[in-house]
Write a protein that binds this DNA or RNA. Structure first.
Lengths: 204, 204
DNA sequence: TTTTATTATTGAATATATTCATGTTTGGAG
DNA sequence: CTCCAAACATGAATATATTCAATAATAAAA
């Protein structure tokens, strides 16, 4: 790696860390690009050489966090129902989330919808990691006969994903709501999903 | 109503309709407040006398649509499962949504997260209508013994709400996805929810 | 009708993300 | 070592949401 590359890495990291710091303490809206540039000791234009936009910056920061949080730790307990398997997984995801100030979480939700084609970037993309992990998990559960046979795995993952997303959204939207409360209602919703809503208990 | 009131109504309506028009044709980001003001024949400042911000404008417009769409038409078919009841309801909600250009939908999702306390305004608020309607619906279904006894109605509504929201988000995020596809996968997800994921078919 | 107070309108001023023409640095070729 | 092209950095210029002090219109009082 030449000097040029090294410098580039250094500058990139400086911008990223500075931005992260300021976003977490002051919030996204209150942090101007100019302030970031100043603290990172580069020009405004330089920030834009490294990141297409302010929202790219925050997305880059959080994407890194997410992939770290989801990366390793998900073990399915040998005993226990499918629900237990999911819960273990979801917990580490949520623990990561609760590190974020709510304000920032909201600003993040907002910015995630910014990219012209949201699918390729934005929140959806970050969530592809989650969705993917979920479907791997479900497939594994199905293999262990812990899922109703014939279940459409892709859609089941998407359903769980939707439930998780909803829990997060309500958590983020309401300053009063604690992460414990979020986890509790998430658990109830997952229970409902596993039990089903039909009265007979069977297929119907 | 004095002249003042009448004028006020007229101006408000002019701004709203002009904005609606431009948002739908050019998109939110491409429509400047100045352009709206010009077309509505008022000054920029006047727009701000009526609406706190640009995002307030789009939210006002869509909130109106939503409440219209949800207002009346939801009949629960006498025969049929609980799932059928939900589907009828969800369909009119979705029909309304598919009137929006995707671009605008995305911009809307974004702006909905803007208000400082998202719960009191924003998307969550619009959705309170939906959520409320869902829980009334579920309560009615429970009364008719079309729901598994002992189900936590509030959380069940929230679960369905989450599934709907997810379907909408994926629809909005992906230009390729048709509203038919959205409805199809929504239906599958609801089916999964009603059947449950546990293998035994029962409570477990 | 004239005067006064309240309410509404106005557009220039402000703040900030983003662009871009210009200048500077770097790694390597001769 | 000198010079060149490519890569990088810079900050003034641009665009646009939002604010606000000044002006105008309206309703009520005299």
């Amino acid at each position: 790696m030449g000097l040029r590359e090294i410098k580039k890495e250094r500058v990139r990291k400086a911008i990223l860390e500075t931005a992260r710091d300021m976003f977490f303490t002051r919030g996204y809206d209150e942090t101007t690009i100019e302030a970031i540039a100043q603290k990172a000791e580069v020009a405004v234009g330089t920030v834009y050489n490294y990141f297409d936009s302010k929202s790219t910056l925050i997305l880059a920061i959080t994407a890194e966090d997410t992939s770290k949080a989801l990366g390793d730790k998900f073990h399915i307990p040998e005993s226990g129902s499918g629900l237990d398997g999911i819960k273990v997984y979801v917990n580490s995801f949520m623990k990561n989330l609760s590190m974020y100030p709510k304000r920032l979480l909201r600003e993040l939700m907002r910015e995630a919808w910014r990219s012209e084609t949201a699918l390729s970037k934005g929140i959806i993309n970050q969530d592809l990691t989650l969705l993917d992990a979920l479907s791997r998990l479900l497939r594994e559960l199905a293999g262990k006969h812990k899922l109703k046979p014939g279940t459409d795995i892709e859609h089941a993952s998407l359903t769980i994903y939707g439930i998780i997303t909803t829990a997060i959204m309500w958590y983020a939207a309401d300053d009063e709501r604690t992460s414990r409360q979020m986890l509790e209602s998430l658990e109830i919703m997952l229970q409902i999903l596993f039990r089903g809503l039909n009265p007979e208990g069977g297929d119907k």
